[in-house]
Amino acid sequence: MNTSAPTNLLRVAATALAGLLVATLAACGTGSAASAPEDPTLLPEAEGAVSYPLTIESGFGEVTLEERPTRIVLAESWGADVFGALGITPVGTDEQISLFPWALDAQAIESVWSISDEQFPLERIAAVEPDLIYTSSAVQDNLAELQQIAPVIGVPRDDGGISDWRDQIHLLGSALDLQDRAQQVEDDYDAYTASVREAHPEFADALVAYMVFWGPGEFGVINYEGSAAESLFGEFGFAPNPTGAGLGPGSNLTPELVGRVDGDVVVLVDQSQDQAAYGAFVGNPLFQGIRAVQAGKFAELDNNTDEYIGYEGTEIPFVGHFTRALSAGPLGRQAVGDVLVPILAQHLGGA
C-alpha cells in the first residue's frame, strides 16, 4: 500500500529541499562568505508581492517586520507540517520535531531543545538570534519575554488546541512573501481530497468512528466534534459522527460509554504496547456490541512503532507519529489518508 502523497504537495516540499542543496553547493563553489553567508535556514525566494517594512496582524497583536525574516524559530514542533509545506527550515524548535519526519529534517535545524516544565527555553531561543518567532498555540505566559527576543506571530486558539493549518499557512505566507506558494499548497491539498471523494462515492455521508486505545482505562473517539480528525473525514465525504458530540481533546470514554459508539465502520488504533490490555478491550461485550464491529466492518491498526502501521498481518510503511500527522497539516494529513483510504474503502465496499 503506497503511503506517499500522489499530488503536488510533497513535490512542493521536495523542490524546497532541492533548492537548499543548490544553495549549499553554490555557497561552496563561490568561496565568498560575503556573497553566500552561512545560514541553516531555508526560505524559498521571495515572490515580490510585498515590501518591507511590513506590518502584519496575528493572534498576538500587530507587529512590524523591518526586513524579510530569515531566521525563524518554530516555538512548538506542532507547526512542522506547515513549515515543511512552505519550504521553511526553522533555526530552532523542540525535540518532538523528530515525530514529523515527513515535514522537516531535524538534523538540518540549528538548535533543538528538550521539552521540560518550562514552556519555552527563552535562553536557547535567544541564542539562535531569530528575527521571527512563530507559534501555533497560546503563549500568554511567555509572550512578553518572547517579544523581547523577536516579533511573535501565530494563530492561537482559546482552548489551547492546535490552530487550523490553513490559517497558519496563509499567515506565514503573508509574513514571508510566500502568498502564492501558500495558496498552491492549499489548492493541491483540496484537489487531493476532491479526488478521494470522486474515487470513493461509498464514503458519502457514511459514519466512521476513529478510536485510539492508549492503555487500560485510556481510550477514546478521536474524530470528536471540531477535531482535526473530524475535518479530515469530512473532507473525504464522511458525515460528522454524533458519537463525538460533547467530547474534546483528552476525553476518555468510560467503559460504559463504549456502547454509545456508532459508525458504519470502526477504526481502532492500538498505541498501548500492552497486548493483554488491548485484547481485553476488544473482547469486551460492549465493544463487540458496536454495530460496525458486529457487521465485521472493523479495522485494527497497530501503531506501536514509528516505523510502520500494522494491519491484517502486513506492515504499511509510515515513519513518524501517525496521530500527530492526522492533526498536523496538508503533508501529514495526506500521508495518513494514503494509509486510511484503502482500508476504509475495503470495509465499505469500495474499489
Rank of each mutant, 00 (worst) to 15 (best):
N2T: 14
N2E: 14
T3I: 06
T7H: 07
N8T: 10
A16V: 03
A18D: 13
A18Y: 11
V22F: 07
A26Q: 15
C28F: 14
G31P: 00
A33P: 03
A34E: 15
A36P: 03
A36D: 11
A36L: 10
A36E: 01
D39Q: 12
D39F: 11
T41Q: 14
T41G: 15
L42P: 05
L43F: 02
L43K: 06
S51I: 12
Y52I: 07
L54K: 07
T55A: 12
E57V: 08
E62F: 11
V63D: 10
T64K: 09
S77V: 00
A80Y: 01
D81I: 12
F83W: 06
F83N: 05
G87Y: 06
I88H: 02
T93C: 00
E95C: 13
E95N: 14
F100Q: 13
W102S: 15
D105T: 07
Q107V: 11
I109A: 04
E110G: 04
S111N: 15
S111F: 13
E118K: 04
F120T: 12
L122K: 09
A126Y: 06
V128F: 08
D131N: 11
I133W: 11
S136Q: 06
S136A: 13
S137D: 04
A138T: 13
Q140Y: 14
D141N: 14
L143I: 07
L146Y: 09
L146C: 10
Q147G: 03
Q148E: 12
I149F: 02
I149C: 02
V152R: 01
V155E: 00
D159L: 08
I162V: 13
R166E: 13
D167H: 00
D167G: 00
L178Q: 02
Q179W: 08
E186S: 15
D190S: 08
Y192N: 09
H200Y: 12
H200T: 03
D205S: 13
A206H: 00
A209K: 15
F213V: 04
F213N: 07
G217E: 09
G220L: 10
V221P: 09
V221S: 02
I222Y: 12
N223K: 07
E230A: 14
S231E: 13
S231A: 15
F236Q: 01
F236V: 00
A239E: 01
P240M: 00
G244M: 07
L247M: 05
L247R: 01
P249F: 05
S251E: 03
L257V: 01
L257H: 06
V258P: 04
G259P: 02
V261Q: 05
G263N: 08
V267K: 10
L268Q: 03
Q271R: 15
S272W: 00
S272T: 00
Q275L: 11
Q275P: 03
A277I: 07
A277F: 03
Y278S: 03
L286E: 08
Q288R: 14
I290W: 00
V293Q: 10
V293F: 02
K297P: 09
D302F: 02
N303H: 09
N304W: 04
N304T: 00
N304P: 10
E307D: 03
G313L: 01
H321F: 12
S327W: 14
A328N: 03
G329M: 02
P330G: 11
P330A: 14
P330S: 12
G332L: 10
D338C: 15
D338M: 15
D338E: 15
I343K: 06
Q346P: 06
G350L: 01
